[in-house]
Design a protein around this nucleic acid. Structure first.
Length: 414
RNA sequence: GUGGCUGUAGCUCAGUUGGUUAGAGCGCCGGGUUGUGAUCCCGGAGGCCGUGGGUUCAAAUCCCAUCAGCCACCCCA
């Protein structure tokens, strides 16, 4: 029994789950298409340094969450923990001469070695977009607008809030970092162990901590927003204005800090309180230095990723579509006819279930449970007359329909 | 990685102070004269009580370990 369980933090996505899963990704695909984005798939695993060099050597993802192993030739391989680094790599190796901007979306499994809990698994799925080659704040606005559009169509907008912050450009951030570290020296003793280490390598992240001592230390600390240089302030101002123009409401959250090193300027997160401790359903920001850092041409980028499982948990039950029509033969002599009628109708584009066994009562019962909208009953009586009995399973109305006009009659159920 | 809670049939759970062949509801399968769907009646399959050790004459029940789930921290989608 225990051998039959999937590995920790993974799960089988059964047909019922997939209906929700697919509804999320189908919606996202359709809307990304409306914004002119094209689909890209990158490998599920990459050379380890694709992630370790870009996400930040000290980030949690790199230090303790990656699935890394050596392949048979001793190359270090890592199952992708997120999508952006792989897409950036693909851009450099295969799309560098493409006309800018390059607008991409992707969907697929990601892997992070973490302790599972609600809304958090070791293998999970993300849908994400990347907009490459746009340094204008309008790019951030488009990216966020696209995300909001998808959340809106999924019907979850009323249960999320858009949290927005800026990390400023490199100059602003470096300057601020120095003042923050200096300020926090006096509080060193009360900081958590993790945050004491962050003092050295990523002091901004202390803002994110839920540790009481950390929060107290940071409560009256100088804010990054006060340390922004003029161009960073201007950039952020134009993002906010753009969002207002697009009619998207947001809250400024000065404590919102991205965990991955490659972010600059815009950082945002659509957050909910409905998924336990996991707040983010769609989050991202700007990453202007990433592609150059990986060895490509200097190319600005902005984008986000959304958790497919998290969104699946939030959406309403998606419609069962298409509802099938069940073909039910009565008596052994009619099976061949039933089969060929079923095939004919399937080729005409109708969703057809064939009742396999049991008496008529059982088969109608099964058709009902399968969500069928109608049943086509084919018995010897019918065949003798060259008709089939079509029973509407909603209204219970029955009609005898000539076999030749069956297809026409069923058109109402498409 | 840390801490807390949990683990009996596909699902939700019961199982007395440790005592012999471990139960219910739902679901599933079959039947109620191979022709009519949610109901009703009858029958059936399905559990080495998460796994491995230990204590005991005797363990689903007590102890230890381990695995998995849930919750929180950490962090994130």
């Amino acid at each position: 029994m225990s051998d039959l369980q999937p590995p920790r933090g993974t799960r089988d996505i059964l047909p019922e789950d997939h209906r929700r899963h697919r509804h999320v990704t189908d919606t996202a695909f359709a809307i990304a298409g409306l914004y002119g984005y094209g689909e890209i798939s990158t490998p599920i695993f990459e050379a380890t340094d694709v992630f370790s060099r870009t996400l930040g050597e000290t980030s949690d993802v790199v230090t303790k969450e990656m699935y890394t192993f050596d392949d048979r030739k001793g190359r270090s391989i890592t199952l992708r923990p997120e999508g952006t680094a792989g897409v950036a790599r693909a851009f450099i190796s295969g799309l560098r001469s493409a006309p800018l901007p390059v607008k991409l979306y992707y969907q697929g499994p990601m892997f992070r070695y973490e302790r599972p809990q609600k809304g958090r698994q070791r293998q999970f799925h993300q849908f994400g977009i990347e907009l490459l080659g746009v340094d204008d704040p309008l790019g951030d606005v488009e990216s966020i607008t696209l995300g909001a559009h998808i959340l809106g169509d999924l019907g979850v907008m009323d249960r999320v809030t858009l949290q927005l912050n800026t990390l400023g450009d490199t100059e602003s951030r470096e300057a601020y970092r120095a003042t923050l570290v200096e300020y926090l020296q006096d509080f060193r003793e009360q900081l958590s162990e993790d945050s004491q280490a962050r003092l050295e390598n990523n002091p901004l992240r202390i803002f994110d901590s839920k540790h009481k001592g950390d929060q107290a230390a940071v409560a009256d600390a100088p804010l990054l927003s006060d340390a922004l240089n003029e161009s960073s302030q201007d950039f952020f101002g134009r993002v906010r204005d753009g969002l207002k123009t697009a009619g998207i409401s947001f809250e400024i959250n000065p404590r919102l800090v991205r965990g991955l090193d490659y972010y600059c300027h815009t950082a945002f997160e659509f957050a909910t309180d409905q998924l336990g401790a996991q707040g983010a359903v769609l989050a991202g920001g700007r990453y202007d230095g990433l592609i150059k850092q990986m060895g490509g041409p200097e190319t600005p980028g902005t984008g986000w990723a959304a958790g497919v499982e998290r969104l699946s948990m939030m959406i309403a039950e998606p419609p069962l579509s298409p509802r099938p029509i069940t073909v039910i033969p009565v008596g052994d002599e009619t099976k061949d006819q039933a089969l060929s009628i079923a095939q004919q109708l399937r080729h005409a584009g109708l969703a057809i279930d064939l009742g396999f066994s049991g008496n008529l009562k059982k088969r109608l019962n099964r058709a009902n449970k399968a969500g069928a909208i109608a049943a086509i009953i084919i018995g010897e009586d019918e065949l003798a007359k060259g008709v089939a009995t079509v029973r509407d399973l909603e209204t219970s109305e029955e009609a005898e329909v000539g076999l030749s006009s069956l297809q026409e009659h069923l058109a109402r159920y498409r």
